[in-house]
Each structure stands twice: as structure tokens, then as C-alpha cells.
């Protein structure tokens, strides 16, 4: 196979995995009886591409110093995060039964904590992940390591001022092994992001902060894969603004604030699985 064909095969495999990840995310949220389906479904393609096509890691050696790092800054998206980590081999599928349950041995809490294999840092208060990821990326430079640091943020999260403090910092230090991804699903908890407080013009904002900016359709696996595997800029940190749809893949959840933080009923869950078949 030539390179183009290899990429095509990989992308089509990733599409299939993403569908399974969506099903798994809804399965664990439904079973838990609480969680955040909308923001998990919007991030499913990005997360799938990262863990099954892009990142370097050994799930049997989760603390391998040369691993690529991932920080889930939009910490409420544990539905998709834990589904991906489990499939990647950080823990067993059966462990997901304890998701959001008291006494969870791997601390599969509503929001991530580093006790869970594969999690670098606790998140759940928006706006902190980019700074943390930047700190890890700076350490790579000190240690002469070539690992990359990926961080996923929500679009509503960009209303937090600290994101822009970190954006300035990464630009100051020319931290080019830092790749931020914005899951731009247009919908926050209260309202559509634009009406809550508009974050556009988003490309201009990042560019003026000194970042290399890519904008893609976050559900087109071909674009997602290509953007995530693009060679690093020589000096600039990179942001990938991924236009996504909250609740993507389940028609009655798409674009709805009401599906931000509610688990599906048995009936809705069955309907959703049919759409994701």
C-alpha cells in the first residue's frame, strides 16, 4: 500500500472505532445514571484519533517517561475519556461498572483524577488544563524528550481568563510540542456559547496570541487525523479548532443544552444505540 492508502485504511478504521466509543460512552453514562453525554459525543472523533491513531503510549506502562501526554481540560467528558482509556488497555471494560460509583477502586469519578491509570492530572474546574499541559511540555524540553502534549478544551471553557494567560505563556516560551484542541461544539451548560458570551473570532484570537492555528471539521475523521499528525511548527504552539456538534451521532441530542449533563433514560438509550448501530 502507498502512504495515501495507508492513511485511508487507518481513517476508515478510526471511523469504526469512533462509533464504538460513542456507544460505550452512552453505555457507561446510562448505567451510571448521571454524566455528560453531549460533550462526550462531540469529542468522540478527536479522542478516537488521538488514542488509536496518533499518540505514543504503552498502556501497560502508563508512567513511561517518553509517552505522549493527554490532558482532558474539559473534565466533565469522562464518558468518552474513560471509554477510550479502557479500550486502549489502561484498565478493563469491567472496571467501567464503577464509573461514578462510590468506592470506585480506580477512582472513576465524574471528573478525572490521576489515580486512574492514564490520567495525568485532576480536572473538572474549567480553564486549568492548558496551563498544566504547558508545564508538562516545558518539562519535555528540560529532559530532552520528544514527547508531545495534547490538551482538549471545550468552547465554553475558553471564556475562562486563565486559558488566555496560558496562551500567552506558551507563546512566550515557544512551546511547540504543545497541541491544544478546541472541541467547538457551540453549546455550553446554560445556553449556546455564542449567546452566553461569544468567543469568536476564535482563529484571530489564537493567532494574535502567537499560535499556529488549524481549523477543521471535528467529525471528519480524515481532517481530524491529518490535523493531529501535522508536523510541529518550529516555534509556535498549535491549536486545532475543531468544529463539532454537541451530542453528535444521536439526532435528539444534537445541539441541545438539555443534554449537557443528563443521563439518557432506558428508552432514550435504546433509541440512541439504534442510531449509532
Amino acid at each position: 500500500m502507498n502512504t495515501a492508502q495507508t492513511v485511508e485504511t487507518q481513517v476508515s478504521e478510526l471511523r469504526q472505532i469512533a462509533k464504538e466509543i460513542r456507544r460505550k460512552s452512552l453505555e457507561i453514562i446510562h448505567r451510571a445514571g448521571s454524566g455528560h453525554p453531549g460533550g462526550s459525543l462531540s469529542a468522540a472523533d478527536i479522542m478516537t484519533a488521538l488514542y488509536f491513531g496518533v499518540m505514543r503510549y504503552d498502556s501497560k506502562n502508563p508512567k513511561d517517561p517518553n509517552r505522549d501526554r493527554f490532558v482532558m481540560s474539559k473534565g466533565h467528558a469522562t464518558g468518552v475519556f474513560y471509554s477510550v482509556l479502557s479500550r486502549a488497555g489502561y484498565f478493563a471494560d469491567e472496571d467501567l461498572v464503577s464509573y461514578r460509583k462510590i468506592g470506585s477502586k480506580l477512582n472513576l469519578s465524574g471528573h478525572p483524577h490521576p489515580k486512574t491509570p492514564g490520567v495525568e492530572i485532576a480536572t473538572g474546574s474549567l480553564g486549568q488544563g492548558l496551563s498544566v499541559a504547558h508545564g508538562i511540555a516545558l518539562a519535555a524540553r528540560l529532559d530532552n524528550s520528544d514527547y508531545k502534549v495534547y490538551v482538549l478544551m471545550g468552547d465554553g471553557e475558553l471564556q475562562e481568563g486563565q486559558v488566555w494567560e496560558a496562551a500567552m505563556s506558551a507563546s512566550k516560551f515557544n512551546t511547540n510540542n504543545l497541541i491544544a484542541i478546541v472541541d467547538f461544539n457551540k453549546v455550553a451548560q446554560d445556553n449556546i456559547t455564542k449567546d452566553l458570551k461569544d468567543i469568536e473570532p476564535l482563529e484571530d484570537k489564537w493567532r494574535s496570541f502567537g499560535w499556529d492555528v488549524q481549523r477543521i471539521d471535528g467529525h471528519d475523521m480524515n481532517q481530524v487525523y491529518k490535523a493531529l499528525t501535522l508536523p510541529l511548527d518550529e516555534t509556535k504552539p498549535r491549536v486545532i479548532i475543531a468544529d463539532t456538534i454537541k451530542g453528535k451521532g444521536v439526532s435528539f441530542m444534537e445541539g441541545k443544552t438539555s443534554w449537557h449533563g443528563v443521563a439518557p433514560s432506558d428508552e432514550d438509550y435504546e433509541k440512541a444505540l439504534k442510531e449509532l448501530a
Partner: peptide
């Protein structure tokens, strides 16, 4: 890190995760 304490504390936390 400049006058941005929140960013500084979290950047420190990131550095600390690597030892």
C-alpha cells in the same frame, strides 16, 4: 510566568507530574 498566578500554579503542577 508574568502576572498570572493561576497559570503559574497550574504550569508548576504540570511540571511536577514529570518528576
Amino acid at each position: 510566568m508574568g502576572i498570572s498566578e493561576g497559570d503559574m500554579v497550574c504550569t508548576a503542577a504540570g511540571l511536577a507530574t514529570t518528576g
